[in-house]
């Protein structure tokens, strides 16, 4: 069966060990986590986990049920298939030799990103967007020379009716 990407938004008790229960569930049952993003919600006792996982239709049903079964899980929402917005932030450390700097700044401008740190031979660029935008930016910067990147993983919320 076809594995597809699913974005899950999971509300959990904000307690020690909860993340470990979720990570343990995935490793113990052989599911995979593509990315994971966790932080407190407006209610300090509740955290939101945004998770991207790849699974076929049978496995994703199990994953959602198993997540819900954990005592600390309050709600499991699958965003995939709904109308939702997603964002990810990436810091890209790119080699910035004098001959490339203008080119880098042009790309930064086109993609509406920011240079957040300037070193002797490197720029660090902050980019926010969906997967498509980020991949496009990275593919343009790669020939110039990317030293390293840090990604936040996807965060997402469903859209409210217009």
């Amino acid at each position: 069966m076809n594995e597809e990407k699913h974005i899950l938004s999971i509300l959990v008790d904000n307690e020690p060990g909860v993340l470990s229960r979720i990570a343990g569930l995935f490793s113990g049952r052989g599911y995979n986590i593509e990315s994971l993003c966790v932080a407190e919600t407006l209610e300090p006792k509740i955290s939101r986990i945004t998770m991207v996982t790849k699974a076929d239709s049978i496995a994703i049903e199990q994953i959602k049920k198993q997540l819900h079964k954990l005592i600390n899980t309050i709600k499991v929402i699958e965003l995939t298939g709904q109308d939702f917005v997603q964002r990810e932030m990436v810091l890209v450390k790119v080699t910035a030799k004098p001959e490339n700097r203008a080119e880098i700044l042009r790309i930064v401008d086109i993609f509406r990103c920011k240079v957040v740190d300037v070193g002797k031979e490197h720029y660090t660029i902050e980019v926010t967007g969906d997967e498509g935008k980020i991949n496009a930016l990275l593919s343009l910067l790669r020939p110039i020379g990317i030293k390293e990147i840090a990604k936040t993983g996807i965060i997402a919320l469903n859209r409210e009716p217009k």
Binding site: G17, S20, I71
Partner: peptide, 12 residues
């Protein structure tokens, strides 16, 4: 930590 996957729930 050890019993997390084999208990319904646990507490410290």
């Amino acid at each position: 930590g050890i019993t997390r996957p084999c208990t319904k729930h646990n507490y410290l």
